[in-house]
Design a binder for these strands. Sequence first.
DNA 1: CCGGCATCCTGTGTGC
DNA 2: TGCACACAGGATGCCG
Length: 284
Amino acid sequence: MPELPEVETIRLQLNNVLKGLKITGIEVLTKKSFLGDPGEVKGKKIIGVRRRAKITIIEMEKGISLAIHLKLTGQLIFRKGTEKKYCEQKDGPFAVCELPNKFTRVIISFNNRGRLYFNDLRIFGWIKVINTSSEIGEEKFGPEANDKKSFTLEYFNSILSKTKKPIKLIILDQEKLAGVGNIYANESLYSAEILPTRQSSFLNDEETVKLRDSIIKVLNEAIKHKGSSDRDEAYRQISGEKGTHQNYLKVYGKAGQKCSKCGGIIKRISLGGRGTFYCEKCQH
DNA sequence: CCGGCATCCTGTGTGC
DNA sequence: TGCACACAGGATGCCG
């Protein structure tokens, strides 16, 4: 679920509330969800929270970090015993009125009585104690997709020219471009008016420029709107509130509806085993 | 090396 | 109402 904009929103908010705190305890409720020794981080002070691709990295003193991947259904909810809890959605697996809940896998406690709840319905996500960034394969990731300085046009041209794969699969490949997931791959291609199935090496110069601009623009817009909580509404900000960018999506999950630009019908196909949405009329 | 598929899990929605 | 099946935002590992 969470892609770059959602993880970036969480990172920013966690950085605000966790910086300077000490970890006082780690409770692992589901073994598969926590990799490494919880004792290694106990008592450590938090220096800051950063992000690489879709991984949140809580950096502590002595070069130790907690790397967190939310995969499809992970949530990170921060709460202090005293503060008013967010409670809008009472039912369903992603409601966070009462914590811990059935899907809470790890609870991290801090010296200000705050707690960070890692919830994950499908148990695909993980928290990992790391000493070096290579333990999460950081050096393998491509440039950050929302950063026009590292994601250059020259770089984009070079990776596209080398492959015959459909363009959507390339922008979803974290080793080529870091942070784009299924929602924003669909939205970016729509914005650039390019079909997801187009062969990468056949994009012309104009299309390549437009697609790069669209990816950067779409991701940064979504960050402004604090991410998308679509469909099952798993994604939450650290307060438990939903994001708002779902209200701005143009094609993702909209099969059968009218395109807002041209009135054409939004189609759904499967590409690389993932739901793929596009407007047949305005994407070429 | 590549594409395609199954896999890790649990839950919801749809159609018969 | 029951049941079977499709689908779900990610990423890896296996196969031929």
